[in-house]
């Protein structure tokens, strides 16, 4: 186990570079192999690569041409060097952050579905608790972290709970919306067949709210991520947030930026995972793009 962990901690930037290079090569190959008609369409897949690479190149040139100090704005090359230097720490803390985020997100999904179903099924609960929920959601979660620390001490629990608190709201609202917007005519058809409220919920309401639910996951995962990093920054001994807090205390600006890059990579990864899940689970709701393709 330790050997594997050690290998991963040391080698993850290399693995990432190899994977990206393979992906780029694969797209290039597809573009080159395709006929003239598909080429325009496939070139569009190259656009994100070109624009991303272009942005970093401009950044690099900007820093080098004006000889900006790495203390103010490190160039991508400096960040890459720092990333390689601190790869073990960044890897370890990224793993911790991902773990906190996914745990908080999982709680938010379970709680969000339960509350959303309750709200969708009962107008009394919806009307009664909605203002309270909005109030809770608008409280900046940074302000809640100290309370969590008083309750649970510095550690993983405040991070998980912050991620949870910040991310369950969109799930609740979306699930409830899916249930509340059943077409009245469909409901009439069901009622005239003698369907119970429970049958209408399970046969119509829940399948209908699935696209809303999976749509909200995209929002929730990024929010959960923000929550866990905030809590780590303020009250943790682990996580990318904590690494950044320490880097900024040391005025290690390249490491600060390297951490940001790691956060971005992790965030994009988690976002893409939920998008993939959404496409898999609710293909019927995205029929317009299927019809076009």
């Amino acid at each position: 186990m330790d050997a594997i962990a050690d290998f991963l901690l040391n080698g993850w930037p290399v693995a990432l570079v190899i994977a990206s290079a393979a992906y780029v090569a694969w797209i290039f190959a597809k573009v080159l192999m395709s006929g003239a008609t598909d080429r325009a369409k496939l070139s569009l897949q190259l656009a994100p690569l070109i624009c991303t690479a272009g942005t970093f190149l401009l950044w690099e040139l900007f820093c080098k041409a004006l000889s900006i100090s790495t203390f103010v704005l490190p160039a991508p090359s400096d960040i890459a060097i720092s990333l390689w230097q601190f790869r073990r720490q960044i890897g370890l803390h990224s793993f911790h952050t991902a773990w906190m985020t996914i745990a908080g997100f999982g709680l938010a999904v379970a709680f969000g579905i339960a509350l959303g179903l309750l709200f969708g099924a009962s107008r009394f609960f919806y009307a009664g608790f909605y203002p309270l929920l909005v109030g809770f959601n608008t409280v900046p979660k940074v302000a809640v972290v100290p309370i969590l620390v008083i309750w649970f001490g510095v550690g993983w629990l405040p991070a998980v709970l912050t991620a949870f608190m910040i991310s369950f709201f969109p799930i609740v609202v979306n699930v409830a919306t899916g249930l509340a917007t059943i077409e009245p005519e469909t409901e009439d058809v069901m009622k005239a067949l003698g369907a119970t409220k429970f049958q209408i919920m399970t046969k119509i309401g829940i399948p209908r709210s699935l696209p809303y639910f999976f749509g909200s996951l995209k929002v929730a995962i990024t929010l959960a991520y923000i929550g866990s990093v905030i809590a780590e920054y303020n009250a943790s001994r682990f996580g990318i947030g904590n690494l950044m807090a320490r880097a900024s205390a040391d005025f290690n600006v390249p490491l600060l930026f390297a951490s940001l890059i790691a956060l971005a990579i992790l965030g994009v990864g988690m976002y893409m995972a939920t998008v993939w899940l959404e496409n898999r689970m609710t293909g019927w709701a995205q029929r317009s793009s299927f019809a076009a393709g």
Partner: peptide, 27 residues
């Protein structure tokens, strides 16, 4: 609600996540 009544409206109100056959099986 009278049980067993069949209803059809101007909008077909078929469920998009079910195939046509599965829609028929709903009642």
């Amino acid at each position: 609600p009278v049980k067993m009544a069949g209803m059809a409206f101007q909008a077909p109100t078929l469920l998009p996540w079910r195939t046509t056959l599965e829609n028929l099986m709903l009642p």
